[in-house]
Amino acid sequence: MKEALEKIRCVEESNQAAYHELEQEMNRYEQQKKIEIQNLEKSQKELRIKALNDLENSLIEEEERYRMFLLQQTKENNQRDETLYEEHKETLIQQIINEMRGNYGG
């Protein structure tokens, strides 16, 4: 009987040791997974920030290209208007003179 109790005590001690070892292993595994999750979250955050920065830079470049396009269009329109004015200036002046003569005599 004493031998049986001794064997039971040894088995219980062995079970306790195995339980504590398993518990420590589970804790290490949990810590490892927490670190992996933190690293993954950090990586994803960095990717989101990079994507947003890339998008912002792309939009800034597109806005600048459009601004330059509009400036060029404005310059071309102004040149065209000035050319048309110069082409028709003499005719307009002559028409105004003729209208004034017609209205006021002369």
Results as ranks from 00 to 15, higher is better:
68 M>P: 00
95 Q>I: 09
24 Q>A: 12
18 A>T: 01
21 E>Y: 04
52 L>W: 13
43 S>L: 03
57 N>V: 08
85 Y>R: 14
83 T>G: 01
92 L>I: 09
105 G>W: 02
102 G>W: 07
51 A>N: 04
37 I>D: 12
16 Q>L: 13
65 R>C: 03
25 E>Q: 13
63 E>C: 13
66 Y>C: 05
91 T>V: 08
59 L>W: 02
58 S>D: 04
38 Q>R: 12
105 G>Q: 01
9 R>K: 15
73 Q>L: 05
106 G>Q: 02
100 M>R: 04
97 I>C: 03
74 T>I: 09
22 L>H: 11
69 F>D: 06
40 L>I: 04
50 K>N: 07
99 E>K: 09
25 E>W: 06
9 R>F: 13
43 S>M: 04
57 N>I: 08
18 A>Q: 01
49 I>M: 11
64 E>T: 15
54 D>G: 10
75 K>S: 11
94 Q>D: 02
19 Y>F: 15
25 E>F: 09
16 Q>V: 10
69 F>R: 08
88 H>Y: 09
53 N>V: 11
51 A>G: 01
41 E>L: 15
93 I>R: 06
70 L>Y: 04
55 L>S: 11
44 Q>W: 03
45 K>T: 11
95 Q>A: 08
58 S>N: 10
29 Y>N: 06
56 E>V: 13
12 E>V: 15
102 G>N: 10
105 G>D: 00
95 Q>T: 05
63 E>M: 14
51 A>I: 03
41 E>D: 12
35 I>C: 10
20 H>L: 13
73 Q>P: 00
84 L>T: 05
38 Q>S: 14
101 R>D: 01
49 I>G: 00
49 I>T: 11
58 S>H: 05
78 N>M: 10
90 E>M: 09
14 S>N: 03
9 R>T: 14
77 N>Y: 01
36 E>T: 06
106 G>M: 05
69 F>Q: 08
41 E>G: 02
1 M>Q: 05
43 S>K: 05
87 E>K: 15
21 E>V: 04
102 G>E: 09
44 Q>S: 06
68 M>F: 08
63 E>F: 14
88 H>P: 01
45 K>C: 10
82 E>Y: 03
23 E>R: 08
59 L>R: 08
2 K>M: 10
13 E>R: 09
23 E>H: 10
9 R>M: 11
91 T>I: 07
31 Q>I: 15
44 Q>A: 10
100 M>E: 04
104 Y>P: 00
32 Q>Y: 14
33 K>A: 03
97 I>S: 02
61 E>H: 13
43 S>G: 03
48 R>Y: 10
94 Q>P: 00
72 Q>D: 10
21 E>S: 04
33 K>L: 10
7 K>N: 06
32 Q>R: 11
30 E>H: 12
74 T>K: 10
44 Q>Y: 06
58 S>G: 08
66 Y>R: 14
39 N>D: 08
77 N>I: 02
97 I>N: 03
95 Q>S: 05
84 L>V: 03
94 Q>L: 03
95 Q>Y: 03
83 T>S: 10
49 I>N: 01
21 E>F: 04
50 K>R: 12
52 L>V: 14
48 R>L: 14
22 L>P: 00
62 E>K: 14
50 K>M: 09
102 G>V: 07
82 E>C: 04
93 I>T: 05
104 Y>W: 11
36 E>L: 12
67 R>L: 13
79 Q>V: 08
36 E>M: 09
84 L>P: 00
44 Q>I: 14
